[in-house]
Design a protein around this nucleic acid. Structure first.
Lengths: 185, 185, 185, 185
DNA sequence: CATGAATGAGGCTTCATTCAT
DNA sequence: GATGAATGAAGCCTCATTCAT
């Protein structure tokens, strides 16, 4: 009946991510996006009515997946290590979240909703980490004399530790080792 | 007619920082800045020829101070703790550095130079941390089986750990404790 | 996939009128029209090649009917009253004509023709009113010391008098009374 | 101190009026306006933040003047004639008011306020006409058997009667004669 | 015919920046 | 130096319209 699509949401999200990771949010326009996708700028408006909705929709999806993946930690042998591992796979998510203050959060109702959803997901995420740590405390594998919030914070901050080594696996090993046993010689 | 209001660099930097900390780089315009300073927009151009130069100059100065302060760590009793402490006082610097990708880095030669200087300063900073850690390793207070870069990274990442507790002092204590001895129970 | 909804000119005109009466010409898009008709926007192009042709065609038809109805006045007992009565039934036409300045009159040859036809019909209309008044003058029921154009104009302007009372009939009675005998006490 | 202005509000209003009278509201853009004024489009934004504010501000001023002028009628020898006369001088106002439905009335708070003010002024206007008619009724110069609203409406509608004759004075004479004494022969 | 997809033209706005005083 | 005025570049967005299926 109608022409076949030349782009789809997957491509849209993919280029959105690439664009932001490469050049930051300041360079994220529909103009640039359209150029990369090889379509007219207005075409994108047939998919998303403005850039805020596109980017927040993308971020929601990203967060959703991360939250799901986090469940792996519950069944893993070394839950904390698993957390770090999952978390590291979402390094880009961390960067994406960093741009949230730059988003015009009142653009449209849909945007506001997306933002709300993101906060909810973010809360879930923290809560899952919390649960994992709590369980570990109960089995005596994690100390109890430090505020949970600090430990959670440290764990989440590890995503910022640069990956200098051969493999992500090695990175995870080292970071896990440090987080668990500290730097002391 | 004209009130002949005068501004100086100190005010300029101060409002620049406030503006960015409050609303992020996206809200950092000469328009907004001029309003806060109570001068005409064009007046700012008598001091800085464009916004990139202003902001990068400000950041250079900030970094310089931080690098200087870092030297305290060399003489401290607990050098690593001191590092964390200094570092935490520059939380805003961390946020400022985060906006670097949003800056049009090719604006003018002066901007490019500022960026270069910043990278140099950043290198110095890492190097100082490196030295501190190295010295600690030599005196056996820090382990040697983990890549230095990972430890440095973790240390620098701690600035992201949120401060939930009463005092910054307590925060430093807890983070230091975790960094040194880990989470293990 | 496609529901194969069909539309006809009658629906098209009906929704056109409703749309314009409710929201004015500024809100008259094929986008809105298509939504109300429950068809794809592009479907309308199978009937009318652009919005100017659609709207001018609609207006031509409206005017044609009004002109026809005006003939009733010739046979009526009180021709002037009949005129006012017919005229009042075309209040919406009056509103439609008001949007003419907003139409891009050079859109297509067909549009230009429609506009021409409208002017012709409008002329006919005036001429019919003129004839009615003339005949009334001849039978001495209407004064002769006022320019015919002014009287015609006043008659046509009455359509703007708001209808505050119970019935349209009452409105016609009052306006007719005023037009014939004036406000004088 | 600063450059001298190349345009002022008066010119802005004047061209606004001309533009709308000539081409209708659809052709009223800052682009067209800027061309006529011989300035850059963005310059106009230094005066009015959007077209709705400009146009509604203009209309408010127009209405204000009309309302003021209406007071002449109270002191005039033939108040109703005076009303028609004043009213006719504001023929353009009538056209301007016609475009109100096309204005995006929620553009900004200022626009909303302007609209409110306009309604207030419009109410004042009707009320003044009402008073004049009432006073005339009391002195027996105007009939009492017709709804006031209808007479007010007719009076206000006269602005639509086209001016075919030499002078506006003549037009006023004829229309006044008709309004007072009617068409009857 | 009906449709959904793509597009271009055109209008809206915001700011950084330049300039005359 | 300080200022207010003007401007251009750049991004946003909406529709009418075309086109392949």
């Amino acid at each position: 009946m109608s022409r076949k699509k030349t782009i789809d949401e997957a491509q849209l999200f993919q280029e959105t991510e690439k664009l932001i990771m490469e050049s930051g949010y300041a360079e994220f326009h529909f103009k640039a996006l359209a150029e990369r996708l090889g379509v007219a700028r207005s075409t994108i408006y047939n998919y998303y009515p403005n850039k805020e909705e596109l980017i927040t929709s993308y971020m929601v999806r990203l967060l959703e997946r991360a939250v799901e993946n986090m469940d792996e930690a519950f069944e893993a042998e070394y839950p904390v290590k698993q957390l770090i591992s999952v978390w590291s796979r979402y390094a880009n998510m961390h960067q994406m979240l960093q741009i949230m203050p730059y988003i015009n959060q009142k653009a449209t109702p849909k945007v506001e909703e997306n933002i709300r959803v993101m906060y909810t997901l973010f809360g879930e995420m923290k809560s899952k980490i919390h649960h994992v740590l709590k369980k570990e405390q109960e089995s005596g594998r994690i100390r109890e004399d430090i505020h949970m919030a600090t430990m959670t914070g440290l764990l989440m901050a590890t995503v910022q530790v640069p990956v200098h080594h051969n493999s992500l696996g090695q990175w995870v090993d080292e970071v896990y080792e440090l987080v668990m046993n500290g730097c002391k010689g």
